[in-house]
Design a protein around this nucleic acid. Structure first.
Length: 427
RNA sequence: GGAGAGGUGGGUGAGUGGCUGAAACCAACGGUUUGCUAAACCGUCGUACUGUGCAAACAUUACCGAGGGUUCAAAUCCCUCCCUCUCCGCCA
């Protein structure tokens, strides 16, 4: 959410930025409502001030056993007027909020302009680290490999829940767990994150705090009877840990990582991208979340991207890092880098991480603040997050890059201690 | 799920209709003093919005879990909801 004052004072910029992000909120309407709102507040405050002083007078009169009926009658009318003003004000603020919740975050000046992914900028690429040689005829795609080795049972997953709910079996389940443990250990032991294990169902206030609601309601699974939502990412519960809190300057930058299952409806996305593990309704992810001072946040974003890249480097998977243009940058984000791994079978880059600086956009919604100095006024923190990383496409990359000519799959060195085996498949 | 108790400022905690935005204590911050990892004393010490002002600041208003209601006037009375604690039941 943007600051009302900011929208009022930078109306043109907000309109342009919204349109770059393919959104058309009614900014002029918002500004008009804001004018009326402030007029009502002023009028209401004057009347309330009058009521307060006269009420004191009534108290004095009554104490002195004098008649106050005249004043009471006057104040009854004043109170009625106040009531009507408050009602109008509530209506206006509701309308304003309805508009404000759909205004996207302003992108950072370093973000390139463009209408879609074609304007994104590749900032780094690490290929040539393929441990099992280049693109050869023996290569099979991940779904075929997964079936042949019996490590993912898509059919039974579909029987249990539906398509997009994979059932990992045997070494596949072990590999999944190994990846998660490996990544969590790395972020907690080497990158200075404090681990959290979060609820997977959250309330509406949490979803609003991180920006999933109200705009993306259709993308989420909801438990209507309990007003709870299945999280699409651990970003939601982790960021909301400090909703309505005031942090101290000393505890920033605060870094949390956590595993969660992630649930996404992915409505209308059936097509070629849905093969195997490429796009799922439920998947596993380790998430990185940071709460930073405004002056540190962009430096922290670069560090966070590096931490996510470190996982791919250690696993020896070819990847590239993309800076998203404004038209491709998410609703809540001011600047986003995507990490993509190469799928030789798909001949495509697959997104495995999205690392963003939200500046104070989420913090304003979720009311997460800090005091720059012990007795200073609280200010909004900057929030950042990134996947570190999501497992399904990581498994895709491992299967496809680490398959050998004899049809087996070698486990990356760093994962072997976590897996307890070196190979998938018989020689 | 049933019964009871309770939710007040960073913390503890007083306050049952009008001089209470809220005592007291603790913490924190500033200062004085004592020459020493401390103590004493003095002072400051919630948040938001609106307005005036370049600003520091000042003024109004609102906020005592959330939302409604009663009243000239609500932390205080009434209703609904949420949460916490205790006991019982159930359960991994």
């Amino acid at each position: 959410m943007l600051d009302t004052k900011f929208i009022r004072e930078h109306t043109e910029r907000v309109i342009q930025n919204s349109s770059a992000k393919h959104a058309q909120p009614d900014i002029p309407g918002f500004v008009r409502l804001d004018e009326r709102r402030r007029a009502i507040i002023q009028e209401g405050q004057d009347l309330k001030a009058k009521r307060n002083t006269v009420s004191d007078e009534i108290a004095r009169l009554k104490k002195a056993k004098e008649n106050a009926d005249q004043r009471i009658a006057e104040m009854k009318i004043v109170s009625d007027t106040i009531k009507h003003l408050d009602e109008e004000l509530r209506g206006i603020e509701e309308q304003m909020e309805h508009i404000a919740l759909f205004v996207p975050n302003i992108t950072h000046t370093s973000v390139p302009h463009g209408k879609d992914a074609s304007a994104n900028i590749e900032v780094r690429r690490k290929d040539g680290i393929n441990p099992c040689e280049g693109e050869k005829g023996f290569r099979k795609d991940h779904a075929t490999l997964a079936k042949e080795h019996g490590i993912v049972d898509f059919e039974r997953g579909a029987k249990i829940s539906g398509s997009g709910f994979p059932l990992y079996t045997g070494k596949g389940a072990r590999l999944e767990r190994a990846l998660l443990n490996f990544m969590l250990d790395r972020h907690t032991l080497h990158n200075g994150y404090t681990e959290v294990f979060v609820p997977f169902l959250v309330n509406a206030a949490s979803m609003r705090g991180t920006g999933q609601l109200p705009k993306f309601a259709d993308d989420m699974y909801a438990c209507a009877d309990d007003e709870l939502y299945l999280i699409p990412t651990a970003e939601v519960p982790i960021t909301n840990i400090y909703r309505d809190d005031i942090l101290t300057s000393a505890e920033l930058t605060k870094k949390h990582c956590g595993y969660s299952a992630c649930f996404r409806r992915e409505g209308g996305s059936y097509g070629k991208d849905t093969r195997g593990l490429l796009r799922l309704h439920q998947f596993n992810k380790v998430e990185l979340v940071q709460f930073a001072k405004p002056e540190d946040s962009y430096n922290q974003l670069e560090l966070l991207v590096g931490e996510a890249e470190g996982i791919l480097e250690t696993l020896g998977i070819p990847y590239r890092t993309i800076l998203l243009c404004d038209g491709d940058t998410g609703f809540s984000s001011a600047k986003t880098y995507d990490l993509e791994v190469w799928s030789p079978a798909e001949q495509k880059w697959l997104e495995v991480s999205s690392c963003s600086n939200f500046e104070d956009f989420q913090a304003r919604r979720a009311n997460i603040r800090y005091r720059p100095e012990p007795s200073a006024k609280p200010e909004f923190v900057h929030t950042l997050n990134g996947s570190g990383l999501a497992t399904p496409r990581l498994v895709v990359a491992i299967l496809e890059h680490y398959q050998t000519e004899d049809g087996r799959i070698r486990i990356p060195d760093a994962l072997q201690p976590y897996c307890g085996f070196e190979w998938i498949g018989e020689k």
